[in-house]
């Protein structure tokens, strides 16, 4: 089974983070939500592997933000 990579894997992470935030610039909350949804769908399709996607869903769901 392919394991979800939970180690750091992105080169120049600060640049990516800035790009992610910049993509949302000037968008309303609804537009931002829609962008996030499109992004998730495109990335999920790129990954394709249902086992990896399942592990990502579980990992994200487990780590709920505690207010």
């Amino acid at each position: 089974m392919t394991k979800l990579n939970l180690d750091a894997n992105i080169l120049r992470p600060d640049d990516f983070y800035a790009e992610l935030i910049a993509a949302h610039e000037g968008l309303s909350k609804a537009e931002s939500d829609a962008l996030n949804a499109r992004l998730i769908l495109l990335l999920a399709n790129h990954i394709g592997d249902r086992q990896v996607l399942g592990q990502a869903l579980a990992a994200a769901r487990k780590q709920q933000h505690k207010a």
Partner: peptide, 10 residues
């Protein structure tokens, strides 16, 4: 609905 519309937009 957000995901549904995203699927359709893409």
């Amino acid at each position: 609905r957000i995901f549904r519309d995203a699927v359709l937009d893409l």
